[in-house]
Design a protein around this nucleic acid. Structure first.
Lengths: 233, 233
DNA sequence: CCAGACCATATTTTCGAAAATCATACCGTT
DNA sequence: AACGGTATGATTTTCGAAAATATGGTCTGG
């Protein structure tokens, strides 16, 4: 989607720096910028049409999120990937997500239930369009993210939600890494459905167990099908 | 310590931006810059001797760490404090720290034990100097931080350690907030000693319980003695 | 007297030139 | 040939001026 010509210079009310942070984040997560790739200012300047300092601000922010690697005096590069990093992210996600699911199930009200149900509904409808390659569909990605966000949205801790969001982004990059080599997606639709039902029926132990399996099996999948990208790094 | 005249322009090998990020972080944690205080570029420029863009980069990085609040098009301010925020940080710290202590106890080797013992030893020696006001002693702060870092250093997850470090910083700011109003510190020395012993003897359940109490009672203390700063925000 | 438009000022945000730093290739010496 | 130093070009990093935006006060019409 080469939209730099159509897109307005920046989104309304936002600074250019924030806008570029957002766009860079998307490209890194989607692996349009490959892991480990150097991020040279000449190139970025051309691609994003912003000045050195504005780009620098965006890269610094992404470095704090763990998506960019800042090498002092030697510029920036896309954060490299490794099996170890994937494992750490997976463990951290399980730790946080399990806690947040429990809290959400304990505290969630009617609005929470409605959000969980409706985001899943939308996700399923989008899935029917192209069940083979969901990750290539930007709408699926958004819907998938929104469903998982809805599940934990009632936890009551903005602090933990921010940490969760960061880990989710970093994990999504690994999913994209393996997406091109994965033969066929496993039955995610069924898993999501089961998680939703466990959550709505307030069966915390079951929901937690399903979420953990969901996260870990996705990671295993990545480790298997992106093995050649993780070992020779 | 007005050291801008003595201090070299920047630390060796580091960028000015990274150096200023570091200095600003320290001042915010120490509440030398008060919570909610606007961070105007004129003032910062004067104080840190750097240009707009360099300062901007530092502020953006600190915003990602949760120590600075970026208000688009309306500048930056020191992140405000609140009872709710303190609670969230405390809960998040317990969640993460408990996990990391367990892992460290399970995986720690001889070097880990030595690090735990020696950092505690140094902490105790520094404590004897001025047992009334430890938080005013920069050396105590460093030693205290290093002891708690040593405890979790064998966990094996750089990802979780980074999250833990961020939460520790944010919590330390709250401790400083109440430091001026707290009548007398409780028996921290004893608590640290007990935690060390539980860790070294590989009694994970006990260590975890002591750490949780340690974190929560510190937070309660802050909530009590900084109440006037937390409620009228 | 109030609400809204308008202007003047304060402040932030962005830019590209200039300085600093790094990487590489070249050269002379051993 | 191997090594160490140095000049050169490439790249990052920093700066302050200029543009963009917000803020606060004043004026006008209702």
């Amino acid at each position: 989607m080469p939209d730099s010509a159509i897109r307005p210079r920046k989104e309304f009310g936002k600074t250019i720096a924030a806008d570029i942070t957002h766009r860079l984040r998307e490209e890194i997560i989607a692996c349009a910028l490959a892991p480990g790739e150097p991020l040279r200012f000449d190139v970025l300047r051309e691609r994003f049409g912003a000045s050195f300092t504005t780009l620098r601000e965006a890269l610094t922010a992404l470095a704090a999120e763990g998506l960019v690697d800042a090498q002092e005096q030697r510029g920036f590069r896309v954060a490299p990937v490794s099996r170890q990093d994937l494992m750490e992210i997976t463990d951290a996600r399980v730790l946080v997500e399990v806690e947040l699911i429990r809290r959400s199930i304990a505290r969630g009200d009617d609005d929470w239930e409605i959000a969980v149900i409706s985001t899943l509904h939308r996700l399923k409808r989008i899935e029917q369009r192209d069940p083979e390659h969901p990750l290539r569909d930007p709408e699926w990605k958004i819907a998938h993210r929104q469903f998982h966000e809805a599940l934990v949205s009632a936890c009551g801790s903005a602090t933990l939600l921010a940490i969760r969001a960061e880990l989710f982004d970093r994990a999504e990059r690994y999913r994209h890494l393996s997406a091109n080599f994965r033969p066929r997606p496993r039955d995610k639709a069924g898993e999501h459905q089961a998680i939703m039902q466990a959550a709505i029926s307030r069966n915390a132990d079951l929901a937690v167990q399903l979420i953990e399996t969901h996260i870990r099996s996705t990671a295993d999948n990545v480790a298997t099908y992106a093995a050649h990208l993780l070992d020779t790094e």
